[in-house]
Design a protein around this nucleic acid. Structure first.
Lengths: 341, 341
DNA sequence: GTGAAAGCGCTAACAG
DNA sequence: CTGTTAGCGCTTTCAC
C-alpha cells in the first residue's frame, strides 16, 4: 500500500512501480493523448496502490497553466459574500477551475496584500468585489494579463469586466418608493464603514432623491461591531426617543432593519402605519420573522454566477468577445413594512 | 512603468533592469541573507517600477515550501464555519501561513475530491472538519506527512490532532438541564442531514440521557432547504398541532429554534412556562430577539484559533510535542426559554 | 502508442 | 556581501 518514508511520491515512483515511462504515466493521469488500454490500467493501478497525489506545483510550472480563480471579497461574516461564493462555486464546478478566496476586511491595504499574494500564484482569473481599489491594486490587475471581473457594484469604471447592481440607483428607488407611500420624516441607520463604498453609494442615491423632493434626512446613526439584530433594536429605540416624530426608518442592511422591526413590534407601534421600515439585501434568512421587512434584493447569487461564467467563457474562448458589463436590476419587495401605493 | 507585452515578468527581468544577479534579487525580495543597503534599494526600485509579482509556483517548487494551510469545511452558508474561519485567519495572520478553503457540502465523495485537489498543491498543513472521512481520505491525510487537525468534534479518533467539543456530551447535558427543569414531554426538530455527524451525535447524546431517565422523545421532525427561521416557525406550528401536549422543544440549531420561539410568542404561548425551548450553537446573530433562546456555545472561533495554533506550532518546531487533543467544554446558556433550577 | 531531452522560474548550496 | 551551478517534478516538444 502506501509508502512510509516522508518523501512525497513523484511521477517517477509511479513510473518505476508500473514499468512505464514517466511521460506515459503523466499522460494517463491527465487523460491526454492516446495510451493503450493495457498501459493505462497498469499505471492507474500503480498510482492508486501507491497513493500517489500529483504535484500541481510542478505541473503548473511546467505547463504554465493554473486552474485557479482568485476571489477577493471584503468579509465572510455578513452573509452576503458567502452567497456570492455559492454562485461562483456552482458555475465553476462544471469546469476545471477552482476558486480560491481571500478576505480584505474592507481595507484597501489588505486588499492590496491579498491581491499580490494571490497573483503570485498566477491564477487564471480574478473576481474581486467593488470598483474602488488602490492605484497599486489597479495596476496589478491591469498588468496581470488575465480576465478580471469586478462584482457587486456597477457605479464606476471597471478594469476589465463588471457584474453587479447600481447601489446609487437602489438608494434612489427606495427613496422614491418611500416618498410615494407618503412618508416624509425619515431616519437612517447604517454601519460605521467609510470604506463600504456600496453602502455609501446607496446612501448617496437615497439622499439625492429625497433632496430632489425637498426632503432631508432628519436623523441618522451608525454602528460597528456586535450583533446586528441587537444593534438595530438599540439604535432604533435610541433614535425614536431622540426623534419621536419620524415616520420612516431606512436601514443600510436587513439585519439591523430586522432588529428595528422587532423593537417596534414589541412596542406595539403600528408598522407600517405609524412608522415604515426598509432594509437592503433581501436576506433569505429573515423569512420567518413575524412581518416581512421591505428590502431590495442585491442579486448576490446571480452576480457570483455571472462573474464565474464570464471568467470561464473568456478562458475557454479568449478570442470570442464576452458580455463584459452586466448591470442587474433589483426590485423592491415591499414586505409588510412599507405602504404600497 | 509596467510592461505591455503579455509575458509575465520574471526574476531575470528584474535582474536585468537593476544590474544585479537573479540570486541577489531573489534574496532582496525575500528578505533573506545579507544584502547591502545600496543593492537592496536598486532592486526594490526596479521591481516596483516594473510591477514585478514573484511566481510562487516556481518558488514553491524550488524551495519545497508552500505556506498554504488547507481548510476543509462542509459549508459556508450556515454561519458556523465562517466563524471558524475567522478564528483561523486571526491566528495565521501573524504567521507566513495562508489558509485556502475548500467546501464539501457534507458529501464524503466531495470531501475526497477537495482533499485530493488541495493536497496536490502540497500545503503545509490541513485543518478539516469532523472525524468521519472516507477510507481514501484518511489514507491521504495519513500519507501526506503534514500536520492534520480535525476540528469541531472530539467524539472519535483523529488521524493526528483534534480540537473541538463533544457533541454527544453537549446533547447529554442539554437533556439533563431540561429534565432538571421539570420538562417531560419533549419534541425534537433538526435538519435532514444524515451526514451531519455532529448533529447526529448531539441527538444521540440527548436521547441517551432521556432514556436513562425513562423518557422518550414524543415527536420529531426534520427539514431541508429554505430559510431556517421560516422552517422553524412552520415545523413548530405543525408539531404542536400534531402533539399539543409537548412541554419542550429541542432544536438542532439556533436558527430554527429562533423561528420556533417567534411562533410561540406570536401565539402568546407562555415560554418557558408552558413550553420550553433550546437550540444549539450560540449564534451571536440572534441577540436582539425579544427573548434569548437557550443554547450551547459551539466554541467556533476558539476552535479555529486553536487549530491554527497547533498547525503553526508544529511547523515552527516540528520536534516539540504540541498539545494534540483539545476538548473544549461549552456551557449551557439558559436564556429566557429554559427554566433554571 | 511510447519515450528522451529540455526547461518552466525559482532557490539551496556552495564558492568566492 | 554577491554570484554560479544544479536541480525541484512536471509537461512540452519532438523523435521513434
Amino acid at each position: 500500500m502506501s509508502q512510509d518514508n516522508k518523501r512525497p511520491l513523484t511521477l517517477r515512483d509511479v513510473s518505476e512501480a508500473s514499468g512505464v515511462s514517466e511521460m506515459t504515466v503523466s499522460r494517463v493521469l491527465r487523460n491526454r493523448g492516446d495510451v493503450s488500454q493495457a498501459t493505462r490500467e497498469k499505471v492507474l493501478a500503480a498510482a492508486k496502490d501507491l497513493g500517489y497525489v500529483p504535484n500541481k506545483i510542478a505541473g503548473a510550472l511546467a505547463s504554465n497553466r493554473v486552474n485557479l480563480v482568485a476571489v477577493i471579497i471584503p468579509s465572510l461574516s455578513n452573509m452576503v459574500f458567502p452567497e456570492v461564493l455559492t454562485g461562483i462555486n456552482q458555475v465553476l464546478e462544471d469546469t476545471e477551475l477552482q476558486p480560491v478566496v481571500g478576505v480584505t476586511d474592507y481595507l484597501p491595504e489588505k486588499e492590496e496584500r491579498v491581491l499580490y499574494e494571490m497573483l503570485s500564484w498566477r491564477p487564471s482569473g480574478v473576481i474581486i468585489a467593488g470598483l474602488e481599489h488602490s492605484e497599486a491594486s489597479r495596476a496589478m490587475l491591469e498588468a496581470a494579463g488575465i480576465p478580471v471581473v469586478e462584482i457587486m457594484d456597477t457605479d464606476g469604471k471597471p478594469v476589465d469586466a463588471m457584474v453587479g447592481i447600481s447601489h446609487r440607483r437602489a438608494g434612489r428607488e427606495m427613496a422614491a418608493a418611500i416618498l410615494k407611500a407618503g412618508y416624509r420624516r425619515i431616519g437612517f441607520m447604517g454601519t460605521k464603514m467609510p470604506l463600504d463604498h456600496r453602502a455609501r453609494k446607496r446612501f448617496e442615491g437615497f439622499t439625492e432623491t429625497l433632496a430632489r423632493n425637498g426632503i432631508e434626512i432628519e436623523d441618522r446613526a451608525f454602528y460597528s461591531g456586535g450583533s446586528a439584530l441587537a444593534k438595530g433594536r438599540e439604535m432604533t429605540q435610541a433614535m425614536l426617543e431622540r426623534s419621536p416624530d419620524l415616520d420612516f426608518l431606512y436601514y443600510s442592511n436587513d439585519m439591523i432593519g430586522a432588529g428595528g422591526l422587532l423593537y417596534l413590534l414589541d412596542q406595539k407601534i403600528d408598522v407600517p402605519g405609524q412608522i415604515g421600515l426598509a432594509g437592503f439585501n433581501g436576506v433569505e434568512l429573515l423569512q420567518g420573522l413575524p412581518r416581512q421587512l421591505a428590502t431590495m434584493d442585491a442579486c448576490r447569487k446571480e452576480i457570483g454566477q455571472m462573474a464565474a461564467r464570464i471568467i470561464a467563457a473568456r478562458l475557454a474562448e479568449p478570442a470570442q468577445p464576452v458580455e463584459n458589463h452586466v448591470t442587474l436590476t433589483p426590485k423592491i419587495s415591499f414586505g409588510d413594512t412599507l405602504k404600497r401605493r
